[in-house]
């Protein structure tokens, strides 16, 4: 009996072996590498030519104004971008949840942009937002508006990127749609009998009932925006004047353009800590407002 139990333990390990190996090689090892190199002065990724320099990468970063800009931009995308994008997803989901004729047709399309490769998305957006010949400025011109410098001006580039995020937010919309479908209709019926207004019904029934999904989307979107890179690199190359220069873009630049690999590793570790802290904070704070059905307050 005991031996069969031990055998079963081995079998368990065998089943999860792929993951166990993958976790060790593709997570633990690189993570260890990052921590190790963060305290060196290696210039090339993985270079064996380095000295240990203690914390000086971290202190150099604190005095680097471009690092400061990348942090500020990323905070912008997290503090402003995440709520806006999440609200956008929710509004679109509410709209697509309406019970009107032909809604299926509308629902077919919202997910399509999410499936566009990001480089193609950027090509398309550059065509649409082209300040001279783009369809958007052409359209605004019909109303007598002047040409807006969407991608090349420090003022507009961040909002344009947030708008782009809404464009590719199909997955979040999908999650909200499913959650909205899952709200038991008897709750609404009871509220209707009580004569609750539509807005009232939304805030006292819909919102609490879908709060776990909101939490989920919020966490995912926060992590995503902390790591924003491709959009900023391809759309505006971090510019103008570092206006769209994100944290991960700076990591990439440090590692591959500036030949300061160890600095990139120090930045990676700081980012890791920041994301961990913010995620924990959201999860902790969520206890107050997220409603789990059947568990009471979670």
């Amino acid at each position: 009996m005991i031996s069969s139990k031990r055998l079963d333990g081995w079998k368990f390990l065998l089943f999860i072996a792929p993951w166990l190996i993958g976790f060790t090689i593709f997570f633990l090892l690189p993570f260890g590498t990052a921590v190790f190199y963060a305290f060196t002065d290696a210039r090339l990724p993985g270079s064996t030519d380095f000295n240990f320099i203690g914390m000086s990468n971290f202190s150099t970063l604190m005095g680097d104004p471009i690092f400061g800009k990348s942090v500020a931009n990323t905070i912008y995308f997290v503090l402003l971008g995440v709520p806006i994008v999440t609200t956008g997803m929710l509004l679109i989901a509410l709209l697509l949840n309406l019970d009107v004729k032909g809604i299926a047709l509308f629902r077919t399309f919202y997910y399509l942009p999410t499936l566009v490769p990001i480089v193609a998305t950027v090509i398309i957006w550059r065509l649409v937002f082209n300040s001279e010949f783009g369809v958007l400025n052409g359209f605004l011109g019909l109303f007598g508006m002047g040409k807006v410098n969407w991608l090349g001006g420090a003022g507009m580039i961040k909002p344009v990127i947030i708008l782009l995020q809404i464009w590719i937010s199909g997955s979040g919309v999908l999650i909200f749609l499913a959650a909205l479908k899952g709200v038991p209709s008897h709750l609404y019926e009871a509220a209707l009998i009580d004569g609750a207004s539509r807005i009232r019904r939304f805030f006292s029934i819909t919102l609490p009932m879908i709060s776990p999904s909101i939490l989920f989307v919020l966490v995912i979107q926060t992590m995503y925006n902390f790591q924003m890179f491709t959009e900023a690199m391809l759309l505006s190359n971090g510019g103008p004047n570092y206006a769209s220069y994100t944290y991960v873009f700076h990591i990439y630049k440090a590692a591959f353009t500036d030949l300061k690999f160890s600095m990139a590793m120090a930045q990676s570790i700081i980012l890791f800590a920041m994301i961990l802290a913010v995620t924990m904070f959201i999860l902790k704070a969520s206890n107050r407002f997220v409603y789990y059905e059947g568990e009471g307050r979670g």
Binding site: P65, I66, G152, G153, A154, N237, G238, G239, P240, N241, Y242, Y245, K253, T257, D258
Partner: peptide, 28 residues
């Protein structure tokens, strides 16, 4: 190749404070 394009592109077209951009560049 790294700083100039970011910092000088718009100011050299009259969009932004040139003196500030030059000071910024000089410090970099």
């Amino acid at each position: 190749w790294t700083y100039g394009e970011q910092v000088m592109k718009n100011p050299l077209a009259g969009d932004g404070d040139l003196a500030a951009a030059i000071a910024d560049l000089a410090s970099k």
